[in-house]
Amino acid sequence: MSDNTLYPGLNLGDSHGEAHVGAETTVFGFWVFVMSDLIIFGILFAAYASYLDPLGLAGAPGPKDLFDIRSVAIQTGLLLLGGTAYGGVSLSVKYNCSRARVLGWLAVCAALGAGFLFFEIKDFVSQAGEGGVPQASGWLSSYWALVGLHGVHVSSGIVWIIAMMGQIVWRGIDDAVKIRLSMLGVFWHFLDLVWIGIFSFVFLVPLA
């Protein structure tokens, strides 16, 4: 298989034989899925922008009242570090490192993701306490839906990481597991990408 047909991103490499070939189709398919998911986020971004005006804010607490940019910065740091940590997983799989190594990196990713969620939920709770509930205005509905959906994605990413750790322990790093780890990588990095959009457009733009 010539190199230019490979899916974008870190490939397993020829030495992985069947897994490398199988990953070609499966991970490509997952890219397509992520593209479709991106449309969902895209529409929610557009909706968020459309509610970000006095009509949509409707006198309820707005960005300036609710956003704690320090906490958002911490979340950003944790999530992006978590994304970087996945590089450890991919490389350990690619270079046939020990199971423990892969499990370790996965655990780091899950922990950083959980840290992100901790701060995000803390923010949600305190915003709700200040009257910033999704029922209060169109803008708040769209804020909760967009950021909340990202949070749901991160949570399911963590569930997926745990499931993969289970599979690694249970069945070892076989071809199917390698391919799934490659897909999980695409997913996990995708969440960073969406977050960068959220960080800039949801938080920075209205505060600017």
Binding site: S36, D37, I39, I40, I43, L44, A47, S50, Y51, L55, G56, L57, A58, A60, P134, Q135, A136, S137, G138, W139, L140, S141, S142, W144, A145
Partner: peptide, 29 residues
């Protein structure tokens, strides 16, 4: 298809959780 998923999910949030995406008042549109 994602667009349909989003519009229906927003409608569901409005109906089940009292969100205001498409309400007549309170910033709905």
């Amino acid at each position: 298809m994602p667009a349909l998923t989003v519009s229906s999910a927003m409608l569901a949030l409005d109906r089940y959780a009292g969100f205001r995406f498409f309400a007549n008042d309170g910033g709905g549109n």
